[in-house]
């Protein structure tokens, strides 16, 4: 009897040893922690290095004062003469900003307020709107494209300021926008002040991005190539807000009914046409064309693109020296 018990104990011990031996293993790891990080637009950078404005801001006086127009005659040898000879006006534009410069997917053509202004110049200079050859450039590329002579003019929601004036010339002001903030309709944010520590998107090389970075509330700036990339990040929940000119924000709000533009304009952004610094004759010519269209075509284009979202407005008064 005792022996039997001993045998039983031994058997139990062996069995438990076998069992614990089995339990020591694990099922094959199937990586239960699979997470797909949501993708970001190409070249999106969170908290990028932003160059401090070089030198004082006010060293050029009022940057919006441009060269006085001297009619639309084209003297031989002038910049306009060269453009006329090659029969193409190369214009740096945006193809991603709704209402200002964007590609209409139905026609493949570029459309918008900026595009209309560029076409008006092409019509005056070369007789036909299709003489404007558009090159899509990013905010960042605007000044280099002018300096390298890749484009004749840039019509791309470009704010006139003293820093840029060091590198390029500007036409007279053709529109005045102001920076505001785009947030979700369901959010409680009223301005940039409420967005401390939150991600706020703008394009690289834009004045808007710098304004976000310099905001005392210290939001985290997020830089992308194109304005619609900001909208994509907003829709993917990767940024809390977008802050730039009210004009651009209005175009985004049009594309997404769950977003709203909030707060007061906290900057003034006078848009000008960028022109290479050495082409003073072109600046005068463009100003002459702008003077001509301020009455009719400007209003027509404004009413078509911007009035429905921004209300009635009239062209800003040019200042000349």
């Amino acid at each position: 009897m005792r022996k039997l018990t001993a045998a039983k104990v031994a058997a139990l011990l062996v069995a438990s040893a076998v069992l614990t031996g089995c339990a020591a293993g694990e099922p094959r790891d199937l990586s239960p922690m699979v997470t797909a990080e949501p993708p970001m637009p190409a070249n999106a950078t969170i908290n990028p290095k932003i160059e401090a404005p070089g030198g004082g801001e006010d060293d050029c006086g009022d940057p919006t004062v441009s060269l006085k127009p001297q009619g639309t005659a084209i003297p031989p040898g002038s910049t306009m003469d060269k453009i006329r000879k090659r029969k193409k006006l190369v214009v740096g534009v945006d193809q991603n900003t709704f209402l200002f410069g964007f590609r209409n997917p139905t026609t493949g053509q570029l459309e918008g307020f900026d595009i209309d202004i560029a076409k008006a110049i092409a019509v005056k200079l070369l007789g036909h709107p299709s003489a404007a050859q558009f090159r899509a450039i990013t905010s960042q590329q605007r000044i280099d494209a002018l300096k390298n002579g890749k484009v004749d003019i840039v019509v791309r929601t470009m704010t006139i300021n003293c820093e840029r004036r060091k590198d390029i010339e500007f036409s007279s002001v053709y529109y005045v926008a102001g920076q505001r903030v785009l947030v979700k309709k369901t959010s409680d944010y009223d301005s940039l002040k409420d967005l401390g520590g939150k991600r706020v998107c703008a394009t690289s090389g834009s004045t808007s991005l710098r304004n976000i970075a310099q905001s005392p509330a210290k939001p985290i700036p997020v830089a992308v190539d194109n304005w619609s990339d900001c909208l994509v990040m907003m829709q993917q929940g990767q940024v809390e807000a977008i802050s730039t000119d009210d004009t651009i924000l209005a175009g985004m709000a049009q594309q997404d009914p769950t977003l709203k533009v909030v707060g007061e304009r906290f900057t003034e952004e006078p848009y000008g046409i960028g022109i290479p610094k050495e082409n003073k004759d072109m600046v005068r010519y463009v100003n002459a064309v702008l003077d001509e269209i301020r009455g009719g075509e400007w209003q027509k284009s404004y009413n078509k693109w911007l009035k429905p979202v921004l209300g009635s407005d009239s062209p800003p008064k040019p200042k000349y020296r």
Binding site: P41, N96, S228, D229, L231, Q255
Partner: peptide, 16 residues
């Protein structure tokens, strides 16, 4: 389809 340039931005992101 709605004529929004956000479409191109999504396509760029996809391609990236």
């Amino acid at each position: 389809r709605q004529g929004f340039p956000a479409g191109a931005a999504y396509l760029r992101e996809a391609s990236e």
